[in-house]
Simulated scan of single mutants.
Amino acid sequence: MELTVAEKIRIVLGRQNKTLTDLAEILQMSRQNLNNKMKRDNFSEKEIEDIARALNLGFEINFIMEDGKKI
């Protein structure tokens, strides 16, 4: 079973000893708004990229062709 984006964010926050409140402050968004996005697991690609940058993480999205090549 694959983890959701929200679950992955929670794991990273735990490993970095940060809270959702910390992340919301870094992103300059309300904790309530971030919490709602986490509950719905509803993030745009741009938001995920911003979260990765805020947590000093790499981020990539790829389409993978049948032959294994990434686009």
Score class of each variant (00 low, 15 high):
residue 1 M to R: 08
residue 2 E to V: 03
residue 2 E to M: 03
residue 5 V to Q: 06
residue 7 E to I: 07
residue 7 E to Q: 15
residue 7 E to V: 02
residue 7 E to Y: 07
residue 8 K to T: 12
residue 9 I to P: 06
residue 11 I to H: 14
residue 13 L to C: 04
residue 13 L to A: 02
residue 14 G to Q: 13
residue 14 G to P: 01
residue 15 R to V: 01
residue 15 R to D: 09
residue 17 N to I: 01
residue 18 K to F: 06
residue 19 T to A: 04
residue 19 T to F: 04
residue 20 L to K: 12
residue 21 T to K: 14
residue 24 A to W: 01
residue 25 E to C: 03
residue 25 E to I: 06
residue 26 I to A: 13
residue 27 L to D: 00
residue 28 Q to V: 08
residue 29 M to P: 01
residue 30 S to M: 06
residue 32 Q to V: 11
residue 33 N to S: 15
residue 34 L to H: 04
residue 36 N to D: 08
residue 36 N to I: 02
residue 36 N to V: 02
residue 37 K to Y: 06
residue 38 M to W: 00
residue 38 M to G: 05
residue 39 K to I: 09
residue 40 R to F: 05
residue 41 D to P: 09
residue 41 D to R: 09
residue 41 D to L: 09
residue 43 F to G: 00
residue 44 S to G: 11
residue 44 S to H: 10
residue 45 E to G: 12
residue 45 E to S: 15
residue 45 E to W: 02
residue 46 K to G: 07
residue 46 K to A: 14
residue 47 E to H: 05
residue 48 I to R: 06
residue 50 D to A: 12
residue 50 D to K: 12
residue 51 I to L: 06
residue 53 R to C: 03
residue 55 L to T: 04
residue 57 L to D: 03
residue 57 L to I: 09
residue 62 N to G: 10
residue 63 F to T: 10
residue 63 F to D: 12
residue 63 F to G: 06
residue 63 F to V: 15
residue 63 F to N: 08
residue 65 M to L: 15
residue 66 E to M: 10
residue 66 E to I: 08
residue 67 D to Y: 09
residue 68 G to R: 04
residue 71 I to S: 09
